[in-house]
Simulated assay, not measured.
Amino acid sequence: MQLEEVAFLLTDVMYVSALLGREAEIPINTSLIYKVTLLAVRDSRSLGVLTALDCISLGSQKRECGNFHFEREEYESAMRSYKRALSILEIPAPATLSPEEDAELCEHRIKCLNNLAGAQMKLQLLEEAVVSCDAILMMDQDNVKALYKKGKLLSETGSLDEAISILKRALKLEPTTKAIHAELSKLVRRQKGEPGTSRPKGKPKSKALLKLGDDLKPLLPAKRQSTRKWIMPWIAILGAIITVVASVIAAMSLTEES
């Protein structure tokens, strides 16, 4: 585009409304057309020369974008945003930072890594999530969120003893957190082999599936649809046979009475 040139930009659904839409503003699965006017052109700033404050501001924007996707259960998009935020927050060289700036950047990295681990857990990327938790614990060995997540991840992979040890450590740091109590109690029961403590099979339907309901029927696999079409005629035939038999029996009964 040239300066002051006007263009119309047709957006893809995934960049605007995705599966759930945006409440009353944008309906489900809707694209938009933007009218764009190019008002100015400037060179982009090199990430390598950003100040710590710039990195924190830009990284926070990317993290908030990830949080938006996470709340909508768009976990892959959320994960990409968190990774982008981390790449920005890790740019400044520690030697050029004051202790206060370094501590603030570290705090924001920890927030991003915790959110990233949450998205990875939702996507069943267990090994990657453990790496994210370990990166947090290298910066803050007493980070309760990372300890709790790592304990859950280790329990998923069958490392019950290590998971219980880590959860006990988290509980010692935050003895009033109910989620840690519940997870630790569940693992102790599993370790003892008590019934009813095995991991549930399958996963619950997402908000998107629950919200769309019958609207998803056209998207069902062909096999499921064809099976239903095959069953329905046989039900009708069976109903007709039952009706005929009942009529015959009724007729025979009337004949005997007469």
Rank of each mutant, 00 (worst) to 15 (best):
E127A: 13
Q225E: 09
L113V: 01
H108K: 14
L58D: 10
S185K: 10
L58K: 14
L19M: 09
P94W: 12
K211L: 15
S247W: 01
L58I: 14
L20T: 03
A179I: 10
E23N: 05
P204K: 07
K205Y: 15
L125G: 02
K207A: 11
R45P: 06
L216C: 01
A250L: 12
L160M: 07
Y82V: 03
V245I: 14
S81D: 12
G193W: 12
V144T: 06
S226M: 08
L212H: 09
K192A: 15
F8A: 06
M138I: 06
V13P: 00
D215P: 00
K152S: 03
R22N: 08
I231P: 06
R190E: 14
A246K: 08
V130I: 15
L171V: 02
K168P: 04
G48C: 03
L210Y: 00
N143E: 13
P204W: 05
K186Y: 01
R42H: 10
V244E: 03
E76L: 07
A78F: 05
S155M: 06
T197I: 01
K217V: 04
T96N: 13
G59T: 11
V131Y: 02
L47N: 15
G66A: 04
A182W: 12
N29P: 00
D161S: 09
P175T: 00
E156M: 10
E156I: 11
L137K: 00
L171N: 11
K203A: 13
W234N: 07
K168V: 06
L105Y: 09
K223Q: 11
Q120M: 02
L9W: 09
V6A: 05
V188W: 01
E257A: 11
L147A: 05
L113A: 01
D54N: 13
A250W: 06
I235V: 12
T176L: 08
R84P: 00
G59Q: 12
R190Q: 15
C106N: 12
L173Q: 02
S57E: 12
A52K: 07
S87Q: 13
A146P: 04
L147Q: 06
E183I: 02
I231A: 04
A240E: 11
S247V: 02
H69Y: 15
S57M: 10
C65I: 06
S87C: 11
A182C: 02
L147E: 07
E90V: 10
L154I: 04
R84F: 12
L216Y: 05
E104Y: 03
K152N: 10
A135M: 13
K223D: 12
L125E: 15
P221Q: 00
L126F: 08
A24K: 09
G158T: 04
I26Q: 05
L187A: 06
A85K: 09
R228D: 04
L32T: 07
Q120V: 00
N115Q: 08
S165Y: 09
A179V: 11
K211T: 15
N114A: 11
A182G: 01
T227H: 03
T255P: 00
V244L: 15
